[in-house]
Structure formats: structure tokens, C-alpha cells
Amino acid sequence: MRSKAWTEKFMQGVFFVAACASILAVALICVFLFANGIPAMREIGFIKFLTGEIWRPNSEQFGILPMIVGSLYVTAGAIIFGVPIGILTSVFMAMYCPKQIYKPLKAATELLAGIPSVIYGFFGLVVVVPLIREFGTTLYKAGLVKSPGNGNSILTASLILGMMILPTIIGTTESAMRAVPAHYYEGSLALGATKERSIFRVIIPAAKSGVIAGIVLGIGRAIGETMAVIMIVGNQARLTGSILDGIRTLTGNIVIEMGYATGLHREALIATGVVLFVFILIINFSVALLKRGADHE
């Protein structure tokens, strides 16, 4: 009997330690990033670094405002395209899909998750970029936009990123919806609600935490994605007002220049990583707050 109690205690300890692993990992990454990035920020000047609009490392001008704005634009775009389609598709997978075609479709979404970013990048470059260029030129000729852009644009990157976050959102949302007990749905139908009403008023609210988890994972993937984005977004380090123009993202800035950077330039890139990291922290905090607010309702 005593040995059993001991095993219980011991395993509880093991679970606790495992749970601490993620804290340890974040702490380590924090230490490494901040130790390398903060000195460079201080040298450049925090305000100058964050609000500077010009990025010319060779002439010692390090302003990352365009990249901050770029990351915001592209991620927002990915959410606009990816989240509604992803959630609706998981509704289809969980509630509408005929049994015969479910398996191949499910396998296909899982396949989508395993395609390397570089492929999405080339696909975007060869297929989507020319379409967007055509689209931009049409709008330009119709006098709706000031510049036609050249296809490598915020819009293109948003589309491709929207595609890339689909499997993450579909995977988590669908399994969250399937986990909702069947009697919720049946009860709602029995009360005379239509199928759609039951799904959107009963099942999705019940699966809320899983759906939010999927969206957060998707946003994470969108902000962090680099290899595909740098191939299609143009990477111009300057501000722009049009979604048909190119821009550079924070991750893109790191990946593109890390290969050749030395000295202060390299540290400034790591500092870019710090900004990105703080960014992600802010997003997660606000999601946590939102969730808490929703729970209290």
C-alpha cells in the first residue's frame, strides 16, 4: 500500500517536471535572445530602433518600423483568409462530410501540413504572384489604385499564409468539435433548431477553447513563417499604404540578412528577433485576457 502511494507521488512529480519543461525552454530562449539583442538596441537607441523608418545596415541606419507594420499586415491578412475558411471547413469535416469521402479529405488536410514552406513559396511565386499582378494591373487601369504593384505583395503573402495555416486550424477545431458530447447536438435538434443553428449556437460555443487554441496556433504559424513569405512578399524595407505593394516582415528581415551580417548588423537582427518575441508575448497575453473575459460571462 505504501509503495503505491509512493508511486502516485513520484509520478505526480514526473508530470510536474514535464510541465515545467516548456517554462525552462522559454526561459532559455529568453535569456539567449535578450542577452544578444538588448545591447544592440541600446547602442542604436530603443526609440530610434523601433520607430525608425529606414533600414540601411551598411550605413548604420537600423529602423524596423516597416517590418513591424509588415508583420502586422501579413498576419492580419492570413487570419482574414485562413480563419473563416478553416473553421467552416472543419464544420464541414465534422458535421457534413459524407462518410465515403471523409477519409481521403482528412488525409489530404494532413498532407497539407507536411508540405515544406519552400514548396508553398515556389507555388506562390509561379502561380499566385502572376495572378495578383494581373489583378493589380486591372485595378490600376480602372483607376482604382495608385500603383499596380508587381505581384509580390502583402495580398499574395496573406493568401499563401492563409493556405498554410489551414491544416493547423482545421486539425484542432475539428477534433474540438468532435469532442463535444453528442447529446448537446441531439438535444438542440430535438428542440427544433436547424442543423446549422445547432452547430453554430451549441457545438462551436461548447468547443470554444479548442477553436481558440487552433486560431492561436495558426496565428503563431503565420507570424513565424519565413521561408515561404520571403519568396513572395517583395521584402522592401519601407512603409506602404497599399496591399498590392511589397513589404518586409520581421522574420523575413532576420532570415534574409542573417547569412551575411556581422557585428552590429547581426546584433540588430537578433534584436529584431527580440521585438518579434515581445510581439508574440503581447498577442498571447491579450488572447489570455480575452479568454478570461469570455469565461466570466
Binding site: V216, G220, G224, E225, T226, F277, I280, I283, N284
Partner: peptide, 13 residues
């Protein structure tokens, strides 16, 4: 919070 942070860190970092 830490796991969500981890999931948001870009792979290059």
C-alpha cells in the same frame, strides 16, 4: 502562456 509563446516563436529563432 509559455506554451503559447513557444508555439509563436518563429522557426528561425
Amino acid at each position: 502562456l509559455t506554451t503559447e509563446t513557444l508555439s509563436g516563436i518563429p522557426s528561425i529563432v
